[in-house]
Amino acid sequence: MHFNKEAVGNPYFSNPEIDYVYKAKIEVYKKNFGGILIIKKTGPESHRVVFTTEFGSKLFDFQFEGDTFTKHFIVDDLDKKFIVNILKDDFRLLVNEKAQVLAVYESENHRIYETTSGDRFNFYFLEDETEQLQKIVNTTKTKEKVEIDFTSHEGNIADFISIKHKNIKLTIDLEKFKNE
């Protein structure tokens, strides 16, 4: 049996020993881009998020430390305020490890924890039996904005992650590199 939590967590990028490396496929307004997404927990409240092309050239290199966002590098073509803001918000949501719970709901298979961040709300869907995080839905007061789905086969490693935007045509699909 599980019990209600005061804080809800995302365990998928929480181990500083692990290099989290994913093949990324991005579809934006029917255009496709690929690359490699690399995430590393670099401090108690710090994550580094780097996106490169398949050839290894960096497209962006961000750091999230508590509430502080640092743009170490971004290619000129992506260095536009609205793009940076989308990337910043998506990846902050993805790597954020803990949030205070405002309310708890139940659905057929999930216990749902509501949290807040700025003027947005996040709903963390934990599967009933395993308490595994399966989904985060980011909303305004009235509308769903972003949904992140996690597929995990073992422990705290997400094998597949899908980030879908509801108000713009943007999907980011991530598949974990398999160990040799």
């Binding site: 020993e17 290099d19 490396v21 490699i36 690399i38 590393k40 670099t42 580094r48 780097v50 290894g56 590199f177 040799e180």
Partner: peptide, 9 residues
Amino acid sequence: LDFLADDVK
């Protein structure tokens, strides 16, 4: 990448 334990191969 400097902050990684291993190179991405």
